[in-house]
């Protein structure tokens, strides 16, 4: 390969789209949610899941798929009060993990966002673009997780492979 990277498609994960005021969400979800990140475009995890702050009054909760039903039962999307929106979106995104010494090179090819460590810290998470389509990027210990709408997954698989050489 042209670049020293490993690209791994990740299995479907439990994802919940959360909108509303943080305190209201915290009150409604209780311990089901990890601590809220303290600044936008960052993530916070508790070992059970990761909460990404992605926009004004907008978070995505990410957890292993085997927690999906339990989270659904706890978060009760259909019963949430009108000023909260909780929507299960587990199937909307396909995640790819890009790791290795040159993971940043692949992300530079894919994505216009400034992902330098001085700008995008170890807890960074943000919506962006990847190979011309909407994407979500999150810092991972040894690289990045990159997600696109699931329908684009075959295209992204090929684009990442060609970028890596």
């Amino acid at each position: 390969m042209r670049y020293d990277v490993t690209i791994t498609p990740l299995p479907t994960m439990a994802l919940f789209d959360l909108k509303g005021r943080a305190e209201a969400l915290r009150d409604w979800a209780g311990a089901a949610l990890p601590p809220f990140p303290d600044r936008p475009n960052s993530a916070c995890g508790d070992g059970q899941g990761i909460l990404m702050w992605l926009g004004p009054e907008h978070w995505i909760l990410r957890a292993d798929l085997d927690r999906e039903q339990a989270l659904e039962a706890t978060l009760r999307p259909a019963e949430a009060p009108p000023d909260l929106s909780i929507v299960r979106v587990s199937d909307t995104l396909a995640f790819f993990r890009i790791t290795g010494p040159e993971a940043d090179a692949i992300l530079a090819i894919a994505c216009p966002l400034d992902l330098h460590p001085t700008r995008f810290g170890p807890d960074g998470a943000s919506f962006t673009r990847a190979f011309g389509v909407s994407a979500l990027v999150a810092q991972y210990t040894e690289g990045f997780d990159l997600a696109v709408a699931r329908s684009y997954a075959p295209m992204l698989t090929r684009a990442l492979a060609e970028a890596a050489g």
């Binding site: 090819i109 190979f131 011309g132 389509v133 329908s151 684009y152 997954a153 075959p154 295209m155 684009a159």
Partner: peptide
Amino acid sequence: AGQRDGPLALPWRETPVT
């Protein structure tokens, strides 16, 4: 154009039953 050539010239999407 970079890597946006051939099959990657434009993005494409598939459904679960493609």
